[in-house]
Simulated assay, not measured.
Amino acid sequence: MRPPLVLDDPEDLSLGVPLSLAQHPARVYLDSLAPGSRPTMKQSLDAIARLLTSGQCDGDTLDWAKLRYRHTSALRTALKVRYAPATASKMLCALRRVLKEALRLDLIDPLDYSKAVDLGRIKETRTLRGRALSSEEIAALMATCDLARPIDLRDAALMAILRGAGLRRAEVAALAVRDFDPETGALAVRRGKGNKDRTAYLPSGAISFLRAWLAVRGEAPGALLCPIRKGGHLEIRAMCADAVLKILRRRAKQAGIEAFSPHDFRRTFCSDLLDAGVDIVTVQKLAGHASPATTAKYDRRGEETKRRAVQKLRF
C-alpha cells in the first residue's frame, strides 16, 4: 500500500482569491510550453496539487506560492514511491518551473523559493524504455496500407513521417501542408518540445508516400494529416496526438507484430542513423534533442552493433 502524503491542513494551500491568468504561476508556465506539451504537464500539475491537498485542489486552485521546503521534500518522496523515476523527475521539473514563475511574479520570497526547489534528483533505472522496430516490422506495417483508400494513404504518410523524420506524435499531428516541401522533403517543425522550431527531412522513399496522400487530400491550407470519416470523407482539420497512437495500434494488430508506441519509431530513427554512421550531434539536431546525451538514450542498436564495432580493430 502506498503511504499517504501527510502535510498541513489542505485548506492552507488553497488559493484564497482567484488569480488572473497573467498572475497565476501555473498558467504562466503552461502558456510558455508548446501546445503539444501542455496537456501532459497540466496533468502533472493537477496530480501534484491533489497529492499536496489530499485531493482538494488542482493545479488552478492550489496556491503555489505557499509551498515551502517541507511541502516539496514530502512531495518528492511521494512521487518517488508512486511513479516511475522518469515520470517523477518530469513532475518535479514542472514543479520547479511553476515555482520559478511564482518568483518572477513576486509571489514568493527568494529565500523560500531557493529552499523549496533545493531537491535531490530522482535517479532513473538503467533499463531502457521502449524498443526499436526491425525493418521487417516496418515493412509489415506499411504492407497493411494497400493505398487504394484515403485512410490507407493517410496512414502510410503518417508512418513515413514517423519512420523517416523521427518526429514526436504531437509534432506530426501539428504539421500543416505549408510545412512540407515535396521537392526537398523538408518538414518545418514549429514549436516542438521546448517551444523550439527546427527543420526535419524525409528520405526520398518517404516523400512519395506524402505526395500520394496530398494527391487525395488536396493543397488546401490546413493540417497535413487529417481525420477521415467513414466513407472516406476528409475533414481538413488537425488530428489529436492520441489519434496517432490509435492508428499505430490498429496497424500493429493488422500487421501481426508486437505492440509499440509512436515514440518507438523515434527510437528506431535515432538508432538507424547512428548505425549508419551519422554522427550523434547531427542525429541530435534532427531529433530536436537538447543535448547529445539525450540522443544517446534513444540508441537501441543492441549487442550486434557493439560486436561489429570491435571487428574494425586491427592487430
Rank of each mutant, 00 (worst) to 15 (best):
M1N: 13
R2W: 15
P3M: 10
D8C: 05
L13Y: 05
G16L: 15
A22D: 13
Q23V: 05
P25L: 09
V28E: 05
S32H: 08
G36E: 07
S37C: 02
R38H: 14
K42D: 06
K42T: 04
S44W: 09
D46N: 14
A47E: 07
I48E: 00
I48C: 03
I48A: 02
G55L: 02
C57W: 06
D58N: 10
G59T: 00
K66E: 01
L67S: 00
R68T: 02
Y69W: 00
Y69I: 00
H71P: 04
T72W: 04
S73G: 04
A74T: 07
V81R: 03
A86T: 09
A86C: 05
K90D: 05
L92F: 03
A94L: 05
R96M: 05
E101T: 02
D106A: 09
L107P: 10
D109R: 12
P110L: 08
P110S: 09
S114F: 12
A116M: 01
A116W: 00
V117L: 05
G120A: 07
R126C: 12
L128H: 15
S135N: 12
E137F: 13
E137C: 13
I138V: 12
I138R: 12
A139Q: 15
A140C: 13
L141N: 10
A143E: 14
D146A: 15
A148G: 08
A148H: 11
A148C: 07
P150W: 10
R154F: 05
A157F: 02
L158A: 08
M159D: 04
I161H: 09
L162I: 10
L162G: 06
L167V: 10
R178T: 05
D179W: 02
P182C: 10
E183K: 15
A188S: 00
A188R: 00
R190H: 03
K193V: 05
N195K: 15
K196H: 06
D197F: 09
L202G: 05
P203D: 00
G205K: 02
S208C: 08
L210C: 04
L214E: 07
L214C: 06
A215P: 14
G218K: 12
E219S: 12
A220I: 02
A220S: 12
P221Q: 06
G222L: 01
G232Q: 07
H233G: 07
E235W: 03
C240A: 02
D242V: 07
L245C: 12
K246I: 06
R250C: 13
R251I: 01
R251S: 05
K253D: 13
Q254Y: 07
S261H: 11
S261M: 04
H263R: 11
D264F: 14
R266S: 12
R267M: 11
T268F: 14
C270N: 14
D272R: 08
A276H: 09
V278Y: 14
Q284M: 13
Q284T: 09
K285Q: 12
L286V: 12
L286T: 07
A287F: 06
A287G: 09
A293C: 03
T295K: 15
A296I: 07
K297I: 11
D299F: 04
E303C: 00
R308L: 15
R308I: 13
R308W: 14
V310M: 03
Q311D: 14
K312T: 11
K312N: 12
L313G: 13
L313R: 12
